Computed example of a mutant assay.
Amino acid sequence: MATEMDQLIQDLRNYRTPSGWHPGAPISRQILWFCVGSPLLSARWLPGSAWRVLLLRAFRARIGAGCRIKPGLRVKFPWRLVVGEACWLAEDAWLDNLATITLGDRVCLSQSAYLCTGNHNFHSPSFELRLGPITIGSDAWIAACAVLAPGTDVGPGAVVALGAVVSGIVPAGAIVRGNPSVVVGERISRSV
């Protein structure tokens, strides 16, 4: 039984989907994705990357040429995913894209990275949903177990280190780490 104080802080019975928000696809596509597409995409018993790219494209994701997608990848809404060319999306990465996620070219998204485009207003008793797209610039690396909050913008060539928690803007070429993440260096380009 909830006390009066509990209701003042967080009363989830009063939560409502935000006015005007929609998953972005007809219900038939949503059902097909959640029942067939999503389980196939994340299946570990099915090897291969090319068919995963085709599967995501079939559900209206925009994915450039030369991308590699590993088993275990989770995508909430493929129709809200834009991926540039030659990107790597690793095992157990989770693209929780209630809003659009955009990756530039040659982005490396490592194991168990979590990209979260939706959060809740914890100051409000009705816990309203707050959305923000995530953008990752070309040549950026999001290391294993990193977490990107709604509205995060990672600049081109930046590195988000192992387990970092990022909210806001990561400057181009910066190396960030920690929780909350802080700039600890600059990525130097070297000719090969």
Rank of each mutant, 00 (worst) to 15 (best):
V182S: 13
I31P: 00
I9N: 04
G163T: 02
F34I: 06
L103M: 07
G132V: 03
P47D: 05
W21K: 10
W88Y: 14
A25G: 06
C116T: 02
D139G: 06
A58V: 07
G37C: 09
A43C: 14
R187K: 14
A174H: 04
H120C: 05
R68L: 10
S28E: 13
G48F: 09
P71I: 12
V83N: 09
A58H: 05
T117N: 03
R62W: 05
A58G: 15
L56G: 03
A99N: 01
E186D: 09
V107R: 03
A86V: 00
G157R: 03
Q111H: 13
L95V: 13
V107Q: 04
L32M: 15
S181D: 02
L54S: 10
L8R: 14
A144N: 10
V170D: 10
R52W: 08
G24V: 05
R74Y: 13
K76F: 08
R74S: 12
R60Q: 13
A50S: 12
D153G: 00
V53C: 12
D105Y: 02
C145R: 14
N119C: 02
D96C: 09
S112G: 08
G151N: 08
E186Q: 14
P171R: 13
R44C: 06
Y15G: 07
I31M: 11
D105N: 14
R80Q: 14
S19W: 04
L103A: 05
G178F: 07
G64S: 14
V147F: 15
A143P: 02
G173E: 04
S181K: 01
S110P: 03
S42G: 10
G185C: 07
T100V: 15
P47M: 07
A90D: 15
P71D: 02
T17E: 15
R44P: 00
G132M: 05
G132C: 01
T100G: 01
V159R: 01
V75T: 07
V53Q: 01
V154G: 01
T135W: 09
S167L: 06
L32F: 08
V159P: 02
I169R: 13
A65K: 09
A93Q: 03
C67P: 04
R62M: 11
N119E: 15
G37S: 12
A99V: 01
A2Q: 08
A93M: 14
A161L: 03
Q30R: 15
D92R: 13
A140D: 10
Y114N: 05
P26Y: 04
T117F: 03
S110R: 10
A140N: 02
V183P: 01
A2C: 10
V165D: 04
L129W: 00
R187A: 15
H22Y: 11
A113L: 04
S189I: 08
L89A: 06
L54E: 04
S138H: 06
T135R: 12
T152G: 02
I101S: 02
S124T: 00
L54T: 06
A172F: 00
G173R: 03
W33F: 07
S112D: 07
I169G: 00
R106F: 07
F77S: 06
D96R: 02
Q10N: 12
W88D: 01
I134Y: 08
S38T: 00
Y15H: 14
A144T: 13
P23F: 11
W94R: 06
R60T: 11
C116P: 03
L41V: 11
L32T: 12
A172L: 02
